[in-house]
Every structure is written in C-alpha cells, then in structure tokens.
Design a protein around this nucleic acid. Structure first.
Lengths: 250, 250
DNA sequence: CGACTCATTGAGCGAAGTCAACGTCCGTGG
DNA sequence: CCACGGACGTTGACTTCGCTCAATGAGTCG
C-alpha cells in the first residue's frame, strides 16, 4: 500500500517536473505530502458539486472524471484523471467545487490537505508556479476537448480520446500508447465525447473493422497508431509534454 | 485614449478584486501596468498559434476570441474576451500559445509585458494567487462550454451564451444583462457554439418568435430574462462572480 | 453605383439519437 | 455447481436535429 501511494506521488512530481523544472529540495518537499486515503467504487462521487473542500485529490489507483450535468439528466465528462493526477489542484484557489468528481472504476484517492500544498507553495514560489502551470495544462486539454466535441465527428472524437489517453498513459508509465488499460465503460466514454453509448459502440465497431484498434475488457490495443493519429487529427502539442515524448507521437 | 486604457485596466483590477481581495498597494501596483497598444481589425490574429509571447493581452476595446481549428477548416471558439479581460494571463506560465487569439470586431489590445506581471506577482504573492484564481475561472467557463456543446441542443446553447455574455457585460459595467452590445457576427456565434451559421440564424429566429430576445445590429435586447434562463439552464455559479451579482441572476 | 459582408430562408440530406431487443460476462447465493 | 440477476455490450429499425447547398435580401463603405 505504502509503495502504491508513493508511486502515485512520484508520478505526480514527475509530471510537474516534466513541465517546470524543480530543484531537489522542491521535489523532496512534494514527496513528503501525505493525506488520508479513501476508496470509491465506480460511479460514486469523490467530491460532490457545490462542496467546499480543504484538500486536493491525488489518484492512487483507478480512474476519476469530472462530470457536468444538464436538466434532463445527461452528463458530460469535462476531465479524465489517471494515476498520478492531482485532480483538484485548482481547488487551492477555488475551493468550492463546481462539478462532481466521480470514480469511473474502483479508485483510491489520497486527500492532500490544502494546508500542506499552500505551505510548499509559500516556501517555494517555483512550486507555486509549477502548480499554476499544471492547471494551465488541464485548461489546455479542456480547450482541445471543446474543439473536438464542437467540430469533429464521432469517429474522429473517439480516435482522439484514445490517442490522448495512450500518450498520457505512456507519459505516466502506466502502459504504452499502443496498449493500455482504459478503465471506463462505453457509457462513460460516451459521456466524455458528448455522444450516446449506442453510437460509441457503433463507432468502435467501425474503427475495429478498419483495423485501427481493438477495445475489449477495457484494454485498448492500437494496431495502426499512425492511422489513428490521422483519423483523430491528433497533435499532442496541447498536452505540453516534454519534447522527447512529443517527438515520438508525431 | 489614455482614459480608455485606464478604464479597461480598472475593469481588470475590479475583476480580480471581486474574486480575490487585494490590498490598496496591490491594486495600485496593478494599475501602474503599461504596455504597447495595438489595434486589430475583425478576424485578424492578435496572437497566432504556436507563437511564443512575452506579454499578456488586455482588451481595451472591442472583443477577442480564442480559436481552435480542425483539418477541414472549421473553427471552434474556446473563449470570448470582453473589455477588461486579460486574455492571456496563463501565458505567464505557458508562453507558447496553443491557439489563435483573434479580434472578433475592431479591437484594441494593450500588450502587458510578462516581466511587469511577474514583478508584481513576486512582490505580492497575493496577486500571484489572484492571477491563478482568474485562470481557474476561465477554466470553469471552459468546462461549462464543454457541457453545453456536448449536451445541450442549439436553442439552449444559444440561450446560454446570451445569458453568460449578459451577466459578464453587466459585471464589467459594459451594459445591463437585458441589453448589451455583442460585437460578433452570426458566423462567429456559430463558431462559439459548435453550430453552423445557418442554424444559428434559424435558432435566433425561434427565440425571437418566442418573444425571448431580439438581436439586431449586434445589439442584444432580452425581453424575458427569466424564460431565457430556463431555456438555457443557466446557473451563473460557474462564473464565480461575487454573491451580490449572483443573487440578481437567479 | 457596385462590391462586399452579413443575414435570411427554403429544400433535401445525413450523422447521430431513440427505442427496443438480445447477447455476454461475472459475481453471488441457494 | 449451477441458477439467477445485474451491468455492460451489440445490433436493428426508425426518427430527428442540425448540416449542406443555394438563392435572395439588407446594410455599408468607397
């Protein structure tokens, strides 16, 4: 357990360090962060809308999503978080949650107190900058999703999501971009893409028949990455990953 | 000219101050910010995609939007900025622009050097926090747009945009929520909503025939605010405006 | 006046949604 | 160990919202 917690925290610090460069002392301080660990079953709120939080949520295991909801009950996922993501970093500056944070699969979360994060941010302004930068990456992803949902058809949108998650999984050392566990149901994928589950299913079938990818038992295997990138119009720039990783995605 | 520049800067500081509370000294320092003023005609890039900037853009006059683009040439607006908005605040931590920032109408911009902003942020950590918070509000708006584009139909989406801009215009003292200038063409509105211009036109007609609003010569007159809010499923919470303004929107 | 941009309207089409049935996997408890 | 139930995935038939293509109108500026 301890090692699992630790490895997620390492992934988080790596993630920050890949986009901002942190000193040894700064990394060390971040790695000292600790919080209460809680477990959520799939489709259970980790943070409820309107709730005021005093902690940020580090994903230790599983997967989480941010959900918007409309009057007729339909939902839209606005962010997906994998192991090593600090979902709620922005809650430091905006502690009242606007949306639900929910587990997509059985998920463990470490609740890192704002207090600890603020301490580090005050001691190391460079870390504060790294936090802000991390939030701006999330916003960049959000922009890309808006473009996709607004202007791409179902096939391209689905392909784009798979590309993004592949690159992110690889970045977080949770798999390779051509083979990784995407621990979401087709219903949840539909909520991320602004589609219906039925249409996601049909669209997956199309991609399968094109020989681009396979998705079964929540494992994605990409058979033709190059083609998938073309279908998705995927340009990993928006993920703001280090140059190395970006070159490999082209 | 000087007074116009000054009033936009005042609007920006007010905006920050409404969400974070700044001291007199902090406000004073912000009001000292100065930069080169440039003017852009409609549909001309203020910042081009991929460009590395050393300044943030304060809208002095007119209106600007952030544009994403897909392979077939379609565009998606991911953010709208009105007078007093610092469009590019996040460029302080992520100076490479991912998307185009374009004028929607004839627009004046003050290019505020990052250097000045960083100076203030270093001197006053509280201001750094306010900047970060302002970025998180932008992200919150982005989330709401994603939910709208993903899950609302054209009528609700259009109604929502009008509600949002009404409240923002009123907040920035550029009009009242039931009557304001929305300096965008129907083509641009379509790009903001993920629709086609033709469908925006038809949808406007529906709202006009329902007696909810009028939009002509870029002036919006809302005849039935309450109804518009219902149609849009508009809840201004996500704009994170001060309690006063929020109460009035309900 | 003419050229241009922007707004309006019609007719037909197509991508995605809706409704509904059925299949598959898996955990649970008799 | 098997029968049941529930969640998830698959497929078909039909509908609909928004798109495409195209023509025309209205306002504006040189």
């Amino acid at each position: 357990m301890v090692s699992r917690d630790q490895s997620a925290m390492v992934a988080f610090v790596d993630r920050l360090n890949r986009r901002s460069s942190l000193s040894h002392a700064e990394c060390g301080a971040l790695l000292e962060l600790r919080g209460r660990v809680s477990v959520a079953r799939a489709n259970i709120d980790i943070v409820s809308p309107g709730q005021r939080t005093d902690h940020a949520c580090l994903v230790l295991d599983g997967m989480a999503g941010r959900f918007g909801q409309v009057a007729n009950g339909q939902r839209q996922i606005t962010a997906l978080h994998i192991v090593g993501d600090m979902c709620d970093l922005h809650s430091i500056v905006a502690p009242r949650a606007g949306w639900a944070l929910q587990a997509l699969a059985p998920t463990s979360i470490m609740q890192v107190p704002h207090e600890q994060l603020l301490d580090i941010a005050q001691t190391y302004p460079n870390v504060a900058r790294a936090f802000w930068r991390d939030c701006s990456v999330d916003a960049s992803v959000l922009s890309q999703w808006l473009v996709n949902v607004g202007r791409l058809d179902a096939r391209a949108r689905l392909a784009h999501l798979i590309c993004e998650m592949g690159v992110r999984m690889e970045e977080a050392a949770l798999g390779v971009r051509t083979g990784f566990i995407l621990d979401m149901s087709q219903d949840q994928i539909a909520d991320a893409l602004g589609l219906t589950p039925v249409h996601v299913n049909r669209t997956l079938k199309v991609l399968r028949e094109e020989g681009v990818l396979e998705l079964s038992r929540r494992f994605v295997r990409i058979l033709d990455w190059e083609l998938l990138v073309v279908i998705a119009e995927f340009d990993p720039h928006y993920l703001q990953i280090e140059p190395d990783a970006m070159r490999r995605a082209a």
